[in-house]
Design a protein around this nucleic acid. Sequence first.
DNA 1: CTGGACCTTTACCTTAACGTAAGGGTACGA
DNA 2: TCGTACCCTTACGTTAAGGTAAAGGTCCAG
Lengths: 179, 179
Amino acid sequence: METSQEATKLLKVGDLARQCGKSARALRLYEELGLLAPTARSHGGFRLYDEAAVTRIRWIELLQESGFTLHQIRDLLRAWQRTHYGPDAMNRVRDTFAARLAETRAALVRYRELERELVGSLEYLNTCQECRPPRTTADDCPHCPVDHGVQEPPALVAGFHSSPAPGGGIPLRVVTENL
Amino acid sequence: METSQEATKLLKVGDLARQCGKSARALRLYEELGLLAPTARSHGGFRLYDEAAVTRIRWIELLQESGFTLHQIRDLLRAWQRTHYGPDAMNRVRDTFAARLAETRAALVRYRELERELVGSLEYLNTCQECRPPRTTADDCPHCPVDHGVQEPPALVAGFHSSPAPGGGIPLRVVTENL
DNA sequence: CTGGACCTTTACCTTAACGTAAGGGTACGA
DNA sequence: TCGTACCCTTACGTTAAGGTAAAGGTCCAG
């Protein structure tokens, strides 16, 4: 049963794809981008992967979820492979991670702000719920019986008013002499 | 000087674009998508905007930064405009914001995890810094003088090893009889 | 040795949010 | 009445990460 190679049964793209929850197309794309290579090809040209490929693909997925693009992952991989030839490449790897960390932290700040904005907007929309339809300013809702504590509409809500609906008709073609 | 209309000087796309830090193309796109409409057209067909357009654009920008797509913003706007005809549309607006809030919170969780991952990875890479080139496992770095406290490589680092460089040459075409 | 499942490459399609260019008209100061 | 800076529409290009199709070759169980 055992050939000259290891008997660790090799996988065809379809098998590998199923095992990783990816499409065969995706795996070929990864190869095209230099992220993944089959350990061998069958006599007839079929890609054959070993178990390490599974690890690699999971890793790619993880990095993708971390916000890296496939191209960045490729660069990262290339840099790592060049660590054989000096520490510069290693530094690039570390820098890339550091940059991503910075971006991640920036994203955290932004998302926290956004959360506050959304909560505020929802609060505003909810307090105004009984004035149907609710309007953005107190002026639009003059005899509103509720004394809602929220005064100025949150920024996310403030933009709704004004500006004609673009879907309307032909926008009036005003002859504005003396622009 | 004052025509029949308000004398609030109207802006041409270019002016508006400059004032909002957008391109004229973007503003036309917004119009095409139903997000923005000029209050009028000049005799010759030039778009003419009033100051409300600035507010609208800033709002669009804010929503975009909040993770909404332009199409979603359009839907939001349409729903709002239909609040005239019942509370259903209003509910859709509120639901949309609520959904976004949920997604935002999910993103916060993900990013917090990611931050930990990245910090861990950087820590790992830094402790291994003096073994040039650093390797992922202690085995790869046998006579490393440093007793680095970090043992197993973080997931983000673990995927570097193994798998041939796809850029290499023609991958060996092994005749694997008896697959 | 054959059928059907799977594989190969090549190549065009998709979505978002614009960029850029072409070909031509407009607004307005000098 | 220019000149020229700006505007109009139409339409194709771009990037990311694949999807999908076409035309054909391969693997292997029966």
